[in-house]
């Protein structure tokens, strides 16, 4: 199993109170799976994404990633995990506005300590993969929403991470562009990537092969997607 979550709890401290955000979460995700995590806002799906993405640590329970107990890692090790194993794709792209597309894509490799030449090569490859080879020297503001999201995907892909973690990846895009992005996800999955999409839209969840539904901090259902199961 790529991801194994056992009896995971997450509480937030709000002043004097401890508010539970996730309770009793047990999930296993295999390599090359395509999973949608669904739930209404406030259900805890974002908290789960943060934990999956090593941005946050659980209060109790275990999160094993590729055999590594993530809940035991310190801040530097978590940073390294994010750098090497997690490819984040955000709703609002989260590109650095002052950098060109190429520089944005290079950034994870900068923190991985890769040399200039290697960074360049890999970033160009990633941009080619998402079909933006001709927009490399453009700044995000000079790109359309769809193109920006493609740059973000290239950035997520560039360090060949264990999972792609997409948080409402089409939330800021029109429906046509959204469809294109989801098609790109399909392609990436076929090439062997493991993809986890967090969304509250059923249409987006339908692209995945499995849907985990979260409600009030607990897993409500975890079902294979009939439409896509082949």
């Amino acid at each position: 199993m790529l991801i194994e979550i056992k009896d995971l709890y997450k509480n937030y401290v709000m002043g004097e109170l401890e508010v539970p955000a996730l309770m009793d979460i047990n999930v296993q995700i295999a390599k090359n799976e395509y999973v949608a995590i669904m739930g209404p806002s406030g259900s805890g799906k974002s908290t789960l994404m943060n934990i999956l993405g090593c941005l946050d640590t659980p209060t109790a329970g275990q999160y094993m990633f590729n055999g590594v107990d993530v809940s035991q890692l310190d801040d530097d090790a978590l940073s390294a995990m994010r750098n090497r194993e997690i490819g984040f794709i955000f709703q609002n792209f989260n590109l650095l506005p002052k950098l060109t597309a190429l520089q944005n894509v290079e950034l994870p490799l900068v923190y991985a300590g890769a040399n200039k030449h290697e960074r360049h090569e890999k970033a160009i490859q990633a941009l080619q993969k998402v079909g933006l080879a001709d927009r490399m020297s453009h700044k995000p503001t000079e790109l359309s929403g769809g193109q920006r999201q493609r740059v973000a995907i290239a950035r997520a892909l560039v360090s060949k991470p264990g999972i792609l973690l997409a948080d409402e990846p089409t939330g800021a895009l029109d429906s046509k562009t959204g469809v294109e992005i989801m098609a790109l996800f399909d392609e990436l999955q076929r090439e062997g990537n493991t993809i986890i999409v967090i969304t509250h839209e059923q249409e987006i969840a339908d692209y995945a092969h499995r849907t985990i539904f979260i409600k009030d901090g607990r897993i409500h259902s975890d079902t294979p997607n009939k439409k896509r199961n082949f």
Binding site: G53, L55, D75, D76, S79, A80, N83, F88, Y111, S159
Partner: peptide
């Protein structure tokens, strides 16, 4: 702040 968050998310350590 946002830029810092992005850099952290893609693997920057505190020391970076």
């Amino acid at each position: 702040t946002r830029e810092i968050g992005i850099r952290r998310a893609i693997g920057a350590r505190k020391s970076d």
